[in-house]
Design a binder for these strands. Structure first.
Lengths: 335, 335
DNA sequence: CTGAAAGCGCTTACAG
DNA sequence: CTGAAAGCGCTTACAG
């Protein structure tokens, strides 16, 4: 049998006190409350299984103690790992988090951003999808604390936490150059919407090659959707002088590469060397184990939480900073 | 410069109408509104970049159009995949979702459940962590729509969606039995807290073995934490008559097994055959590719959304049903 | 130590 | 077609 929701008035009435007093109790302000009153209220709340309506409370106090995380794509392991760390940090400071998934859809991102704003969350952590700064105007105009993770948005200045992508790709290329590779290819996902890590890694790849005095040939950099990667690899290996090494722009790209190489029985590192950005679990026990560039997830999560918390507690306008985290090279057997 | 939040009164004043009329506009009730008024309000809302405060609205209308998903552990790929599907379904029906991560911690689960209740979400989807039915009493007493996914809770009757675990393990064992394996081991994560899939798979394993007239030896079923699996495997393979086949209870267990076998240079399927429950991405291009039992994620997600939506729209008390989904055997080269 | 009253920002019958 | 008024469930100075 369905029970009606209990309100603070019900509690007050049953306990024979005023709503104010019950409110004091809920908010742990016991200073001026007799032990007797306190016990009585406690008991009634138990009996009635009373849960305060946060909508009413938030409406009044204008703080929710919840922060929103808007993630570009919840299927990326990297994102959920960072979220996990952020959540742990925030929890210690008495905050809770609502996670929303943009599913790589700028439209959805916008809708969830609106929802989070309407919900009056105390701050927002965003793994951006789109690149339309207007979407963030509201947050900026109203000084709603926010920090960007993994990606940046053109035209928006904000605290940001991301990998030093140039360093990451530099590590990969250097590793390969030292082993004597000269024809190195780089594969990454599409950049029809400008996506920071992809753009930076492409740019970094060119620079890294140059600094090792290696030529970047016309057909060495590929930016394309997952389902076209295998097809593209077929053409790459059909070329006159196929690359002797491939750098995978992220774990999804790596997956396609390994799948293709296995099918074609092309041996790693014998026929082609592989290095991948993002240190996903199976690379360690794959045969051969894959050399990867990892992101310091723990540190990135901690910094993200810290930055947001600072903005929430000190509303002073400290300058915005973009934090770049050093990648780590994990040397294994694929090159 | 920080702007004050705009309210419906600001809009009303600036547009020269009453709050009621603005409210009508926000709620798309244009029936009795002159085109002129409508345009004026629209323009003012634009100018002021007005966003209604959902807390106020929800307080009044007692509907939020958001549902909460409380996931046991957001790091499990299976969970995020189901969440993605559920979200897509719900979105088509005009609902949004807030995801909360219990991080395998019953205490956290309880806190987030409270928060979701306080937020007045219209329904809750739970991948349960704990097994304490009391935690769900409030939801039940107040007929808050909910559906359980992946796991059940003793003493709670509710709509539920999960894999047919008996069938899953039966498929695995049968596959191996047909290939002539007699000594089959089963490894799964701990069951100190009763966790449905693990319990059912253990039970199902015994039944499946029996139905194939195979003996389950003392040392064939292992339930232990991840970090103890490799050690345990060492002892298993040290035994007099080590198993010729291993079934992995889920993808995390599989990871440990593959890692161990690689280290010890034990060949698959030559020295030991492997079958795993949960069809994770890399199993397809691993060498050798791994035979797995997959869950029909899409279907499960669709059913979950459907069940919840039904409870939300028809508050009639249809009987609660537990839906079991048929696993699929994906035959590859590891046995 | 406790209560009455105002108010947070909306929505919704109802009157006109 | 539009507005005045009451109310959703809380919190918070303030008075006593």
């Amino acid at each position: 049998m369905k029970k009606k929701k209990t309100t603070i008035s019900d509690v007050a009435e049953k306990a024979g006190v005023s709503k104010s007093t019950v409110s004091q109790y809920i908010n742990q302000r016991f200073r001026y409350m007799s032990a007797e009153t306190k016990d009585r209220i406690e008991q009634v709340i138990q009996e009635l299984d009373f849960r305060p309506n946060d909508n009413a409370r938030n409406l009044k106090v204008k703080k929710t103690k919840v922060i929103g995380i808007l993630v570009a794509n919840i299927l990326h392991t990297l994102s959920t790992e960072i979220i996990r760390t952020v959540e742990e940090q925030l929890q210690h400071r008495g905050m809770k988090v609502f996670i929303c998934d943009s599913a790589d859809d700028p439209e959805k991102e916008k809708e969830y951003l609106d929802l989070l704003v309407s919900t009056q969350v105390d701050g927002i952590i965003i793994f951006p999808v789109g690149n339309d700064f207007k979407v963030y105007n509201y947050l900026i105009d109203h000084s709603i604390p926010m920090v960007f993770v993994d990606r940046l948005v053109d035209g928006v200045t904000s605290d940001s936490v991301l990998l030093d992508n140039h360093a990451a790709i530099f590590l990969a290329v250097s590793m390969l150059a030292e082993k004597g590779h000269e024809n190195i290819a780089f594969l990454t996902l599409p950049i029809d919407i400008p996506i920071t890590p992809r753009l930076e890694r492409i740019e970094g790849f060119k620079k890294a090659m140059a600094s090792h005095k290696l030529e970047v040939r016309e057909d060495d950099i590929h930016s394309l959707p997952r389902n076209q990667i295998q097809e593209k690899l077929a053409r790459i290996f059909d070329a006159e002088k196929p690359p002797t090494a491939i750098v995978a722009g992220n774990d999804l790209v790596l997956r396609e590469i390994l799948s293709y190489l296995k099918q074609q029985k092309i041996s790693i590192p014998g026929e082609v060397a592989i290095v991948s950005i993002d240190d996903v679990a199976y690379t360690e026990f794959y045969e051969p184990s894959i050399t990867t560039i990892g992101q310091p997830i723990q540190q990135m999560g901690i910094k993200t939480a810290e930055l947001l918390l600072n903005r929430i507690t000190n509303s002073d306008q400290a300058p915005y900073i973009t934090y770049r985290f050093a990648p780590e090279l994990i040397v294994r057997s694929s090159c």
